[in-house]
Design a binder for these strands. Sequence first.
DNA 1: CGGACTGTTGATAGGCTTCAACCGACGTGG
DNA 2: CCACGTCGGTTGAAGCCTATCAACAGTCCG
Lengths: 252, 252
Amino acid sequence: MSSHESCIVRHFSFFSALSDDDKALLAELEDGTTPVRAGTVLWEEHADAHEFCTLKAGWAFSYRNLENGTRQILDIYLPGDIIGLREFAFSQRLAGVQMVEDGEVCFFPHCNLTAIFRKSYMLTSILFAIASRQQVILTERMVNLARRSARQKVAHFLLEMFQRLRQTEANGSESLRLPLSQEILADILGLSPVHISRTFSSLSEDGLVFRDRHVVTMPDLQALKEEAGFDDRYLIENIRPLFDNAETWALN
Amino acid sequence: MSSHESCIVRHFSFFSALSDDDKALLAELEDGTTPVRAGTVLWEEHADAHEFCTLKAGWAFSYRNLENGTRQILDIYLPGDIIGLREFAFSQRLAGVQMVEDGEVCFFPHCNLTAIFRKSYMLTSILFAIASRQQVILTERMVNLARRSARQKVAHFLLEMFQRLRQTEANGSESLRLPLSQEILADILGLSPVHISRTFSSLSEDGLVFRDRHVVTMPDLQALKEEAGFDDRYLIENIRPLFDNAETWALN
DNA sequence: CGGACTGTTGATAGGCTTCAACCGACGTGG
DNA sequence: CCACGTCGGTTGAAGCCTATCAACAGTCCG
């Protein structure tokens, strides 16, 4: 795999090998890169939806603002992710999307996706697999929100991020760049910012998690996984090889 | 639409009109009906996964058992739903599935789904739309779990079920058959069974929800929606008509 | 009639929130 | 270069929401 390959190609290749035709099709999704600054809102809740976008650089998140003034963050997007897939069936946005830090995105219209359904059986299957994986991540997060203590929530989220980043960036260390404020973490985990702070202190007293600015170190991954009830099977191991031979299935 | 039509066809038709070819393809998914008794486990967590199944009659739910002895219910399946879609990309089950009451299911292998990708562009798009809608429902439930009070959780869940049932069963009343025990409700909403009971009492004192066995009545839907922060746009209104003309896109 | 299961009610406890004050890092403008 | 305001994070005190434990009531079914 050349080091020039885009992160979306790398993301797709995680599921199955791609033909050159498929890579060319994907490349079209990354046409017209737009640079965006930290804090930029890519779109607002309830705005009309006609396009997706791929994230080339930087982190982003989707969120909902609630009646009671709080905000819930639904998803964290990392470079290589497709943003807005979840809303494929809807004509309005159900959640806003905002950049965490400076980055680059590429917008593309809905019809580019349906064009993929028409042109490549392989890419269609991978898209379905990506959607499927996203749903599994969501359900795991539901479990996290519903049934775990603050310590577990924080630990589990850190481990999820750690694992997801390992998949697109090769990096063997026990540290993790986490450019998220405690306020954002609170909005992800359904806790108050104050309690996020206390929880980090508590985890750090036990030598499990150290946080210095945006760098998080987890010296004893195994112990942390046990405390968090983290089972990485939902993120890796288990992924089914989609097909034996990876040829683009095109129109005859 | 004939009253003989299967609920899966009705479910798909909700997104877009279907050609006869598409209906025939769908019919294959409902081959070989199996009757199942209440409490039957369709599959266990971590079992090998080679098939999906469609639910023809009865309610079912998927669940995860946690390390700490609690259980989280991830999804409620109603007649017409496809069970296991979420695990398309995985070779092992990530959640168990159990019947709430007596019903009927039809198992079909993964490859039937990929066959659909190959044969019908329309059905592929609808499947994607179904997955998309499922994800939206999940995210709404995440918000519910993370940010709402027990009263709101219960109210919101009831309203979700009410709305979803309206879509497959025409029924104009303000009542709802809800064949779920308070223990199951607790495992859905991340609460204790005891508190579910107290919450129903509290809602009932305010004249918002009455529960008699498995029948729930909500005399003032509007007030309930406001209390719950329930905005039905994520379930209806917003659904995008997929295409203008609904012809099967088959191989040339 | 008895037993199992589901739901109700009361008392107690704990985890997290909220409010408020304070600290340190950073960037800006004088 | 320093003063200052802002933002993110920390710490303490008080209170609320929900869990847990336990006892009891109602219903269904053998």
